[in-house]
């Protein structure tokens, strides 16, 4: 199979929500070698070139299987996303599936209740500290990058929410995308006419951060 076709399929599989896993196959170029930067030129075949090692077909389900983050991947991803490290990680790493290479040699990747529990604990801890750090710094922060806890204007809230979707999930959503709505409800819903206090708004952003750090798309790839 042409390298260009393989590269095209690989690129398709790496696009986040825009190229949904399970989409029908991308139409194949009719001419081998047709691709970006090589308009219509026939491939130059070197008869002395080594035969490529087969790496399997693009349809191979193993290569496209969705995987849960390993314990270490989750811990590091959370550090990158929130700027904070979960201090209890070493204590619960084995329960999150990290092998000890003595008795357990394989990465645990089950989406179990244990995983859900400790991921939630880690997200609550790091998200809260990230927001507290943002508030203390006064400058655009990690979570509160484009909004402050004093902001109530929906457009400002949504702008920061879109930034967080990009930061946590790698998803660049347009304004008004339906995926934003449940999180906008967290930020805007009130049970009375009373305005939310800044501390209440902090808790709302905290919940948004936890929701994204425990989002299925954050925990799988």
């Amino acid at each position: 199979m042409s390298r260009f076709v393989l590269a095209g399929l690989l690129a398709t599989s790496l696009v986040a929500c825009n190229g949904q896993v399970g989409d029908p196959p991308v139409p194949m170029p009719t001419q081998p070698g047709v691709g970006p930067g090589d308009p219509g030129a026939p491939p130059v075949v070197d008869p002395n070139a080594p035969t490529p090692v087969p790496i399997g077909t693009a349809e191979n389900p193993l290569g496209r299987r969705v995987r849960r983050l390993t314990a270490d991947q989750f811990h590091r991803s959370l550090q990158v996303a929130t700027g904070q490290s979960w201090n209890d990680f070493e204590r619960f790493a084995a329960s999150l599936g990290r092998p000890d290479y003595a008795e357990v040699t394989e990465q645990g990747r089950e989406v179990s209740m244990t995983f859900a529990k400790f991921v939630d604990d880690a997200a609550r801890d790091t998200c809260r500290r990230a927001i507290d750090a943002d508030r203390a710094s006064g400058a655009p922060g990690v979570i509160l990058q484009g909004a402050l806890v004093g902001d109530r204007e929906p457009a400002v809230l949504e702008e920061n929410l879109r930034y967080l979707f990009l930061r946590f999930l790698g998803q660049a959503l347009p304004p008004g995308d339906p995926s934003l709505e449940p999180f906008m409800r967290i930020l805007t819903l009130r049970d009375s006419d009373r305005d939310l206090s800044d501390n209440e708004m902090r808790d709302r952003w905290w919940a948004v951060c936890v929701g994204l750090a425990t989002h299925t798309d954050f925990l799988t790839y």
Partner: peptide
């Protein structure tokens, strides 16, 4: 919640 990975 929605996921990148759909029913297909």
């Amino acid at each position: 919640e929605r996921s990148c990975v759909d029913a297909r």
